[in-house]
Design a protein around this nucleic acid. Structure first.
Lengths: 247, 247
DNA sequence: TAGTGGTCTAGACCACGAA
DNA sequence: TCGTGGTCTAGACCACTAT
């Protein structure tokens, strides 16, 4: 047993409850690719025996990881590492929907892909040095056949070798990041503004230049909180809307 | 003891785990005003003894209620009913912030308050019959001195008797709903669009008519999921932005 | 039927805050 | 010092799924 069992009274600084120590170890197994997306992890009893803690302690760690959508539990079957399948993307990472309420997965058509040195803005957003190479993707996304979004994506080349040469670039990028590069997008932070649509995007979206569009600026983070991807999406909101639940 | 102890095997339909039954009872005590906002509730042991269940079962109910922000736990002190103080509003219900990152509580200046029969749109959004009387409030909100939002609020008069005569209308409306009317806003659903600003709102916001503004359409629900309030906020986003965390 | 996660209990000890 | 919530354990039984 490598984890200190009961909290030793001498340690005051850096104390972590046992179940948090267990959780950190298990998260690391996902981050390191030891446990892969979509696969079952060992049973609670097996993990408890391996780490020398009680089942209840393992359960509390798994409960938190489930709440953070890192795991999916299926009664009678087992516990699985969450994958970026379309359902998860749709409910966790794609907030734009049709006004008629139908939720559909967006289609994509790629306009350009390339690898270049990062400019100052990209470097600042991604926390890298200016000039560090990045992959840039520009694509249109449609909902139910109607073009809705003009989207520009930037990722550091270092973590995504060969992405620029990928043909075709898949629709579900987060799934690709996980499967091909072992990078798990765990959460993202979005900043929204209403802006006047620039002429070239307006042409792609079928709008008059200057029309109001919703600009979504998103920074995606991995399991360690490292910045993985920056994307800016310009969205038509005449037939679509962005949903945000406050709770 | 009124709660059925162990799950009786005969019941298949409508089965609820014991801790969920406990939770429903405790939520009801808040909804009924038996436990008031900001006040301490009995200790876990007291609740467990009263309901004839173990402390662990009560704890699981309280854990869920804490996760839903209905309760606030303070180690060594007790468990308290969450109140709509400025901190909670700021983090849970107010997503607009300054671009410089400073988070401040918005000021309000009321333009008009009145009670009238509801129109078709209001009735549909609030789930009431058209013509049922509602209170309408129109106010401007500013962040750090700069006017940022033109906001129109509609609530059914039935649940908020005398609200239209309230002078002044307080800045923190959800706090008023709770204290004066016993109505707890538990969660809200927002729908966002970028729109061209109408002339009268543009004048209030200091914008040219037709400028892009963020339109936030919010429906607020109480503890029972009943529709409490509908509000539409038109927001300048030249110096401000709406934050949405996906996780 | 076997194995998984889900629920419930009981009791121990710890950390924290107030008096 | 006392009472609170926080952590950890151990064991029992239930519900669900696959075989």
């Amino acid at each position: 047993m490598a984890i200190t069992g009961k909290a030793d009274p001498g340690r005051v600084i850096g104390f972590l409850p046992l179940y948090r120590q267990v959780k950190e170890r298990l998260v690391r197994r996902i981050a390191d690719g030891e446990w892969q997306a979509g696969r079952a992890i060992p049973s609670e009893m097996q993990i408890a025996a391996e780490l020398g803690v009680s089942q209840g302690t393992v359960r509390k760690a798994l409960d938190e990881m489930t709440a953070e959508r890192l795991l999916i539990r299926r009664q009678g079957v087992g516990t699985f590492v969450a994958s970026h399948d379309e359902d998860r993307i749709l409910f966790q990472f794609f907030k734009l929907g049709r006004d008629d309420g139908r939720r559909v997965f967006p289609d994509s058509s790629v306009l350009s892909v390339g690898e270049q040195p990062s400019d100052a803005t990209e470097a600042a957003r991604l926390g890298i040095r200016r000039g560090t190479r990045v992959v840039r993707i520009h694509r249109l996304r449609s909902l139910g056949g109607a073009i809705a979004v003009s989207e520009r994506i930037v990722v550091p080349s270092a973590r995504f070798a060969g992405l620029a040469a990928c043909d075709p670039v898949p629709n579900n990028l987060y799934g690709l990041y996980a499967e091909r590069y072992g990078v798990t997008v765990a959460r993202a932070s979005e900043s929204l503004k209403a802006v006047a649509c620039p002429p070239d995007d307006a042409a792609h979206l079928g709008l008059a230049p200057g029309s109001p569009v919703l600009a979504i600026d998103r920074l995606a983070l991995d399991l360690d909180g490292q910045k993985v991807e920056w994307r800016v999406s310009l969205c038509r909101t005449d037939q679509f809307h962005y949903t945000s639940d406050l709770k």
